[in-house]
Amino acid sequence: MKAKKKNEEPMTMEVSKGTGAVMTVILSGVAIAFVVPIFLVLMNSFKNKLYISDAPFALPTAETFAGLGNYINGIGRTGLVAAAGRSAFITVCSVIAIVLLTSMTAWWITRVHSKISSVLYYLFVFAMIVPFQMVMFTLSKVTDMLGLGNMFGIVFVYVGFGAGLSVFMFAGFIKAIPISLEEAAMLDGCSPIQTFFKVIVPILRPTMITVAILNAMWVWNDYLLPTLVLDSDAPTIPMAVQYLRGGYGSIDMGAMMAMLVLAIVPIIVFYLSCQKYIIKGVAAGAVKG
């Protein structure tokens, strides 16, 4: 409803009805071009693997139709169902841990004015710009040494490596919260812990959703970090998809198409069900980051 209202506001310059119709037609063409790649993958996932690479644009025929064969074969070879479970577990745990821990940290370093807090703040900001390749090798060695190379340990790795951006975003919003609220809570006898959870957390809710969405997109789709940290026989979805490439660059295209479909479906369902938050969150994240 809200979004609709926005469109009815007078925009920079509205177009006439005729131009509007022409634009709708052109934009529909562009929209179809945006959806076609996903449709092609879906269509090819039902074709026999021999008929995919050379003719991906041909519709399945009686001869090339493979039914659910690619799905059964692909799931068997990649263990995609278990991989999806692992991906879900890692994403949910990491996102909860990141949102909770970094919001607490951001609050403390914003409210307490000391050398430690400003050093920490600049360290977190610095961490945001360091590309993963810089720490890729050493990080995987540290994880190995600590015995954290499993789906529980990787949650700590995500908290540590993801802390920079999240602390920075929370700190930006906490600075704008008037301190008088906390003083009032204090007078009412709240401990700092109560103040944080009863006063600050409700105000931070929209930011928490933004941070959660940005981190969920990162962790769910992340390929390199889990590849280096996790055991190769306990893959996440992106790892399982990559395994289909096999040696010498040969790929079972049928299984690949089916696995791509299965990898995309949860994302689209998630997107369509909380689209409003995702688009807002991404825009807010971009402005702050």
Binding site: F156, G160, G164
Partner: peptide
């Protein structure tokens, strides 16, 4: 409580 858990993870993995 507020900083140490994040700081430990941040130190170890960054």
């Amino acid at each position: 409580l507020f900083v140490l858990p994040t700081l430990i993870a941040f130190t170890l993995f960054f």
